[in-house]
């Protein structure tokens, strides 16, 4: 028999017996960050590819959600801080080795961009919202009036509208960084064996893109656009599944602690939620539904989209929670 116990009665809140430093805020933040990255990525990508007028929802409309997601994400992050009054310290220095610092600065750059991009499409949005989601219309038109009332601002937006192509390149780069960052934030933690894998970056990026695509698909009214994004989703989900298989193969081929972490999902306490919630509901089921759709069976598009979004959210929660359970000691 082997017995190892802490006998000094150490029982520190949120650390013992298992680490639970990050609660709902961080996974939500990671999810929203990934989602926003996806939206911005597709908008700028298709714009660069010159399909801005064809794939209207993705390029012109959906990115309008991005700033809200980012703001909510940032608020979640702020809520997570235990020494909130000092949060400004994030912006007095840049720590090249700290993903948190990268994240703070990336978000600092993404946030204005995420506002600017949709603002260059205000006219198109007004048109769109006069027909769809009409409750948005007053808001959009208020923003429009507001901007017109401040001349320099109006000028600035005009300038960006004119240089949208350059803007698109900046946005695409920054959105990829944001997407990868949501994964790197976790994978940088050597101490948490579950997170400490280089697949996490691409995996989170792919997942972020797929949630973005799902949202675009859902809000698009154009059949063609939906089909394109449905295909993109199928591809991304397939890539994700591939990464997940690799993730586990990687763990199982590593040291004891990594095998132990993988076991959390292979019979351990996270097995059901991961395989049913993340893989089943979030990946396989939408994959089936969308493939059926491609073959002509009609499924309401909102269902796979919603499943992907839910799956993506659960995925972040599961990864953040489970990662905190894994450790090197004891």
């Amino acid at each position: 028999m082997k017995e190892e116990l802490i006998i000094s009665g150490r029982n520190i809140p949120n650390i013992d017996p298992v680490l639970h430093i990050w609660h709902w805020q961080i996974p939500l933040y990671l999810f929203l960050g990934g989602l926003a990255a996806g939206l911005l990525f597709f908008a700028s990508y298709f714009y660069i590819r010159g399909r801005g007028n064809e794939l209207k929802t993705s390029v012109q409309i959906a990115p309008a959600f991005a700033p809200f997601f980012i703001i909510i994400g940032l608020l979640a992050l702020l809520l997570d801080l235990k020494h909130q009054l000092y949060f400004w310290r994030l912006y007095t220095t840049f720590r090249i080795e700290s993903p948190m610092s990268w994240g703070a600065w990336t978000l600092g750059v993404v946030l204005p961009l995420s506002f600017i991009w949709p603002l260059t499409y205000l006219k198109e949005m007004k048109k769109y919202f006069s027909k769809n989601f009409t409750f948005m219309y007053p808001i959009v038109s208020w923003v429009d009036t507001f901007i017109k009332s401040i001349k320099p601002l109006e000028k600035l937006i005009k300038w960006f509208t004119k240089h949208r192509y350059g803007l698109a390149w900046v946005v695409i780069v920054i959105s990829v960084i944001l997407g990868v960052y949501t994964g790197i934030l976790l994978s940088a933690f050597n101490a948490r064996p579950l997170w400490n894998t280089s697949i996490l970056g691409p995996l989170f990026l792919t997942s972020g893109l797929s949630t973005g695509a799902a949202l675009i698909m859902w809000s698009s009214k154009s059949v063609k656009e939906r089909i394109i994004f449905s295909r993109i989703d199928i591809l991304l989900v397939a890539v994700e599944l591939f990464f997940i298989v690799h993730l586990f193969m990687g763990f199982l081929a590593s040291g004891a602690v990594q095998i132990e972490s993988a076991q959390l999902f292979l019979g351990g306490e996270f097995t059901a939620i991961f395989w049913i919630g993340v893989v089943g509901i979030g990946l396989v089921l939408p994959l089936i539904l969308e493939t059926m759709e491609l073959f002509g069976f009609h499924v309401p598009i909102s269902i796979p989209a919603l499943l992907i979004l839910i799956g993506g959210l659960i995925f972040r929660f599961v990864m953040v929670d489970a990662g905190q359970v894994t450790r090197y000691l004891y």
């Binding site: 650390i15 013992d16 680490l19 997570d80 801080l81 235990k82 909130q84 000092y86 933690f189």
Partner: peptide, 21 residues
């Protein structure tokens, strides 16, 4: 202390659970 924002990253990063809020 007054540079720390309480983000918890260092706690996650320490394999020994030597840090706490």
């Amino acid at each position: 202390h007054d540079e720390c924002i309480g983000c918890g990253a260092c706690i996650q990063a320490c394999p020994y659970e030597a840090r706490y809020f």
